[in-house]
């Protein structure tokens, strides 16, 4: 079974984020890392391929400047290869433009299953995987907390407000996985060394046969018109616990008539 995992390389969340002053788009210069949200999809894909006994995991990603450092992390975990779409024309893409590019790249890998995170940690639009499914003409199951493949269908436990639904879906399909549902493996030293020589196909928009006017800032039909400071919330009273801080909390709750 061949599984494609959509992965995103994002600015380190530990570093303070910034907007590009010209476009108000999120600044993605500098080193990018594998979005932690995607590590669950990578781990799940590796487990599903293991269970199937054959096939491989292909990463599909879109990033500026041919960036591969985040992809190498996922390759070190065990993915076999990566398809990276990198093109200056992609800068400023909206979610639908991104979905068009990723869908075209995924098609090349002819997967049985496409996994993605429910949303990225930087842009967190949360619609790209479903847009990809529609563009590829595939069914989709979102917010999976458990995924099992049997023959040519996938069973998913899908998160709901009340609990979860058991969902059955024929393959090929797109499934988005929520965080925390599997424990992503740490790349071994051997894995890290092997990742250096794993194939990363770097493609341009033209390679995918996509009209550059459909993607990037040219194809984006939305714009950020301004950014302003939100109302600040001041900090209040600080109490250092000396064994009786719970009494202060109770007093506070009483004042609010919660108790």
């Amino acid at each position: 079974m061949n599984v494609v995992v959509c992965v995103k390389q994002i600015p380190d969340p530990a570093a303070p984020p910034a907007l590009d002053p010209g476009t108000n788009n999120l600044s993605r210069t500098g080193k990018l890392i594998l979005d932690e949200s995607d590590s669950y999809g990578v781990e799940m894909a590796l487990q599903l391929v293991d269970a199937a006994g054959s096939g491989e995991v292909t990463l599909v990603s879109m990033a500026p400047n041919g960036e591969t450092s985040g992809l190498r992390t996922a390759l070190a975990m065990g993915a076999a290869r990566a398809i990276l779409v990198s093109d200056d024309a992609l800068s400023g893409s909206d979610a639908l433009g991104t979905a068009k590019v990723l869908a075209a790249a995924i098609k090349r890998a002819e997967p049985d299953l496409v996994l993605a995170a429910t949303e990225s940690s930087d842009g967190y639009t949360g619609t790209t995987p479903v847009q990809i499914a529609e563009l590829l003409g595939l069914p989709s199951v979102t917010f999976a907390k458990k995924v099992e493949v049997t023959g040519d269908s996938v069973s998913v436990e899908r998160q709901t407000e009340a609990g979860y639904d058991e969902v059955q879906c024929p393959l090929p399909a797109v499934v988005t996985v929520t965080a925390g549902v599997v424990e992503p493996r740490y790349p071994s030293f051997k894995g890290i060394m092997a990742a250096k020589s794993k194939p990363v196909d770097t493609l341009t928009v033209a390679d995918l046969g996509i009209d550059a006017g459909q993607v990037g800032a040219a194809g984006a039909r939305q714009e950020i018109t301004g950014v302003s400071a939100a109302e600040e919330r001041g900090s209040g009273e600080i109490v250092v616990d000396e064994g009786d801080a719970h009494e202060r909390i109770i007093q506070f709750l009483e004042q609010l008539k919660v108790l």
Binding site: S140, R158, G163, V167, P170
Partner: peptide, 13 residues
């Protein structure tokens, strides 16, 4: 076929 996903059981926690 895009509409092929089916809920087969619902679990209320």
């Amino acid at each position: 076929s895009t509409n092929a996903a089916r809920i087969v059981a619902r679990h209320v926690e």
